[in-house]
Design a protein around this nucleic acid. Structure first.
Length: 155
DNA sequence: GCCAACGTTGGC
DNA sequence: GCCAACGTTGGC
């Protein structure tokens, strides 16, 4: 069982959008980066937990907790010419892109990126590194606990 | 809107 | 296989 941080643009799908979905689940389609794909394919398992992170928005930060609810399977948008995620080089026989599915667990007060930066214990988090663009990153269990104890459940 | 970082593409 | 050009991400 592992911990993750998953970025979503709230204009696309916010934590509130996820909570409002049927079954409170969403397919994490559209990942077109091999490192992130490999995390999904090789490591992410149902039951894994993740910070749901709002990116590319006015207040970037952790907005909620989600759980992996389905292991990786072929991303259907890669075969859809009408999709912005269409990949003409991928074939159904040998799908290049996969996605997991995640389920809403809970919303948390927004823990801003600027706030995460203030904690020495979190300095190694991938999301805090300069120009960190990877949309799915592993989170160390100690960091996961620290964020809960000091930033989410505190106050 | 700017721009740094960095992944991908494609010519050679 | 190198590497320049290009596109994208995402904080600010």
């Amino acid at each position: 069982m592992r911990y993750w941080l998953m970025k979503s643009e709230p204009d696309d799908c916010s934590i509130d959008d996820l909570a409002a979905m049927p079954g409170q689940t969403v397919a994490w389609y559209g990942v077109r980066n091999y490192q992130a794909r490999n995390f999904m394919r090789d490591q992410m398992q149902p039951g894994d937990l993740a910070f749901f992170y709002h990116s590319s928005c006015a207040e970037p930060g952790i907005a909620g907790i989600v759980e992996v609810s389905r292991r990786a399977y072929p991303d259907t948008t890669q075969f859809d010419p009408a999709s912005r995620f269409y990949d003409p080089k991928s074939s159904p026989d040998d799908p290049r892109w996969l996605n997991v599915e995640v389920r809403f667990v809970r919303k948390v007060r927004l823990v801003a990126l600027s706030e995460l930066r203030q904690h020495e214990a979190l300095a190694n988090m991938r999301v805090l590194q300069k120009a960190s663009r990877l949309s799915i990153t592993p989170v160390d269990p100690a960091e996961w606990r620290y964020i809960h104890e000091h930033l989410i459940d505190a106050r």
